[in-house]
Amino acid sequence: MQELITVEDVTKKYGNKTALGNANLKIEQGEFVALVGMSGSGKTTLLRMIAGLEQPTSGQIRQAGQVVDSINTNARVMFQDDRLLPWLSVRENLTFGEHSKKDITEADSLLNLVGLDEYADVYPEKLSGGQKQRVALARALMSHPKLLLLDEPLGALDALTRLNMQDLILQICRKRNFTTLLVTHDINEAVRMANRIIVVKNSMIVRQVENPYQGQDSVDAEAKQTGIVNDILHTIYEKD
């Protein structure tokens, strides 16, 4: 396995406040890693630094050996809010108005993948919340990025839609061999989807848990998954 992302002694401070302290992390090609932790623990901060939207106060982040020191266009972020452009049709949101045949074909096949081919020509206004998130997912997958960064993309969805979207994302990521970092505060979600779970607490990475039961839904595997969830919950709520 090849190493894609290296986070080395990274600290991020806003003024005097440490948002993330001395973080070290490696993500390998093809991995699906989840980042969990309480609100304000520094998850988004780490993700935004990997995306190059924020620079570390000290330390270094590398992607495939290259230092990330400006906007990282080799990574695609799927934000918590869909951030679709309301003045472009669903297809144009994927292609950013590009009319080349190649782009349009790819956009249409991705829309087909997320089950929205009929909606290619409508404006995002006309879509439901879950449909918008699926468009945002398809947009993030355009031209097969080396790294997918998902920041609580399903936070705003109802439980049932959420489960469907989890399946969809996982299925796509495995089938197309994406490397993915998923930020979530839902530990069940993390354990269902990721092969490794990283726990952030008080601005520090405190634990990394391997999860051999990723994506499995047999009764036995689900019991094992629940065990891991409880273990992680214990870490998070444990008194220092």
């Binding site: 906007i71 695609r76 951030r83 472009l88 950013f96």
Partner: peptide, 24 residues
């Protein structure tokens, strides 16, 4: 947020203006 998205998705300056800033 939309401008940040555009930048992060690697849009050129011209594209950023014509597809995000100007229509907005």
């Amino acid at each position: 947020h939309l401008i940040e998205m555009g930048k992060s998705y690697g849009l050129s300056k011209y594209k950023l203006f014509s597809k995000v800033i100007f229509p907005g």
